[in-house]
Design a protein around this nucleic acid. Structure first.
Length: 259
DNA sequence: CAGATAACCTGCGTGC
DNA sequence: TGCACGCAGGTTATCT
């Protein structure tokens, strides 16, 4: 489900709903995430006031008093909501006035104490042509793999990497080191444009509705996708797919618009 | 050591 | 109807 714009949308709702409240207790589901949260980590946060909710890449950061943090990652199917009746929640967080439920069918979500090492935020000044070209120039891996590598840039997943490469006119399987400077400029610009526009309308909710914000609202960016999940590109060409897997999945692209 | 691949886990749609 | 199979927005451990 969730890439940067969706996580950012979740962050905004969460911050609005729980800032200033005290973290009272929690309950783990059975089974919980497949990488279980550290019980001591959660225990040690009890009684602390939550100051706000931040985001880094696809990670949510609950900021507590005393510089303490709780990191959430939604994985593929994770969803945050406030509905009382959710016995299947993998974890429930009880704050003084609000209960937060973390649902996650596939159990790939995570609750942890610290962030992993991440590349720059794609919407920050640090993500620019100089940076990206210096990283890509020595890499032979497919450019799509590079864009989805969270240690290179934090927040792009399958949907936004696919769309970015379409807008930049680059095939997903192209070797990173074979991207020209003007193309890398387009990658940076397109990714930022996509992410900004998507955030402004609540992210992407695909037809299966596996992403909804914490209040159950869908995003609207799916209407602006150019090739992800499509059979033809905006110019009417049939979409192709790579025979080889790239970053573990088949990559979709237009062989006329992308070189 | 970079890069590719397998594994983690559950649910849903498809085709036989 | 039942069942095997493929596929899904992600990360990470393990290979080559």
């Amino acid at each position: 489900m969730p890439e940067l714009p969706e996580v950012e949308t979740v962050r905004r709702v969460l911050e609005e709903k729980i800032s200033g409240q005290t973290f009272l207790s929690y309950r783990l589901g059975t089974p919980t995430f497949y990488r279980c949260p550290d019980d001591a980590l959660l225990r040690n946060l009890q009684g602390l006031k939550i100051l706000g909710v931040s985001r880094r890449g696809k990670y949510l950061i609950l900021r507590f008093h005393n510089n303490r943090e709780l990191i959430l990652h939604l994985g593929m199917s994770g969803r945050i909501h406030f509905n009382e009746n959710s016995p299947q929640a993998r974890i429930s967080l009880y704050f003084s006035k609000t209960s937060v439920y973390f649902q996650d069918a596939r159990r790939f979500g995570r609750v942890m104490g610290r962030l992993p090492l991440l590349g720059p935020e794609p919407l920050s000044q640090d993500f620019n042509v100089d940076y990206l070209s210096s990283v890509l120039k020595n890499k032979k891996a497919a450019i799509k793999s590079a864009l989805m590598d969270q240690s290179i840039v934090a927040g792009l997943g399958n949907i936004y990497a696919t769309e970015t490469l379409y807008l930049a006119g680059i095939r997903p399987g192209r070797k990173s080191c074979r991207a020209r400077l003007d193309e890398i400029q387009k990658v940076v610009f397109s990714a930022q444009e996509l992410l900004r526009r998507s955030i402004s309308i609540g992210g992407t909710t695909l037809p299966d509705e596996s992403y909804l914000d914490p209040l159950g609202r869908p995003g609207r960016f799916q209407d602006q996708l150019k090739i992800y999940g499509k059979t033809i590109c905006p110019k009417g060409h049939a979409i192709s797919r790579t025979t080889r897997l790239i970053a573990g999945r088949r990559a979709y692209y237009c062989r006329f618009c992308q070189r």
